[in-house]
């Protein structure tokens, strides 16, 4: 018997239609990336004649080698290596930073009673309503005043407050039996010891799931790095792509390199999501619900 079909009729035509819809869906999802990949394997001159079709060309290895800095540096295209590194540092910093400060604040509001506890909770809650898009200019001014423009700190710090992560960890902590706290206190373990040796190990699945989501969130940031990184050497790969595409449109025939860059920009987060699919799916539905 089919796993979930029970008494419902097994309609062959319906199942076939379902597969058809899914295959079409996969095709639509893959198509833009596939075409980008095809473009990245052709010589630049091919684009002028409109000769790029749907089959890969012979220049893939050469194009990617040029992008990562091996072989002849392409004109008008900055080296990709440093940009990938900048993106990686930003994504890692945002993910680790958000998780660290949220774990600490969730610990504070769950395991201690102190004046202004609820006030602190509401202050954290308010950050939900202040996405960077709404406070662009004044935040930029603060970061400029603190001399954090073109630094990793300037990229990372303004994005790491997290109400969602704090709520999530508080929820996790609330499910941990009080007996554990009592036992720890009886053994003379202080709060930080309890935090390191009991709470952190018990929350590691949630931490890992959140890390996957936040790494992707960090890697894909656009507006904020665009404003804070005014020097090319600090630019992230996602923000650089727009400048590259503008070049391809107006001056040099570099679409093959633009698409190569796009592939390199989307590969790391896509690899993370595919490698940690289960964590990601569970994490997403838990954080957002």
């Amino acid at each position: 018997m089919a796993r979930r079909d029970g008494m419902v009729e097994r309609d062959g035509a319906l199942t076939l239609a379902a597969h058809g819809v899914l295959i079409l869906g996969v095709a639509v999802m893959v198509l833009p990336v596939y075409l980008a990949f095809v473009a990245s394997t052709h010589p630049g001159a091919d684009f002028l004649g409109g000769r790029i079709g749907v089959l890969p060309g012979p220049d893939g290895p050469a194009n990617y080698a040029a992008l990562v800095g091996l072989g002849a540096p392409p004109p008008g295209v900055p080296p990709i290596g440093p940009m990938l590194w900048n993106s990686f540092v930003m994504a890692l910093g945002i993910a680790v930073g958000k998780i660290a400060i949220s774990l600490l604040s969730a610990f504070a509001v769950s395991y201690f009673r102190f004046p202004f506890r609820v006030t602190a909770f509401w202050l954290i809650f308010i950050t939900l309503m202040l996405p960077v898009e709404v406070r662009i200019l004044p935040t930029y001014k603060v970061v400029a005043d603190l001399a954090l423009l073109n630094t990793p700190g300037g990229l990372i710090l303004p994005l790491i407050a997290s109400a969602t992560a704090t709520f999530l960890f508080r929820q996790v902590f609330m499910t941990i039996p009080d007996e554990m706290t009592e036992a720890a206190r009886m053994d003379g373990a202080g709060p930080m010891r309890f935090f390191w040796h009991i709470l952190l190990p018990l929350s590691r699945t949630n931490i890992a799931a959140l890390f996957v989501i936040l790494f992707i969130y960090g890697w894909n940031q656009y507006l904020w790095p665009l404003m804070v990184t005014t020097e090319a050497s600090h630019a992230t790969i996602v923000t650089s792509i727009q400048r590259l595409a503008a070049t391809a449109n107006q001056e040099a025939p570099v679409w093959h390199l633009v698409m190569g860059t796009a592939i390199l920009a989307l590969l790391p987060p896509v690899a993370v999501i595919l490698a940690m699919q289960r964590l990601f799916v569970d994490g997403l539905t838990e954080t957002e619900k």
């Binding site: 996969v26 893959v30 075409l35 894909n220 792509i241 633009v258 595919l274």
Partner: peptide, 19 residues
Amino acid sequence: LLIWPYAVAPAVAAILFWF
């Protein structure tokens, strides 16, 4: 096969569609 576009940056998705 269907979930990975979630990981693509909006700006990158936009460039793919532009192309």
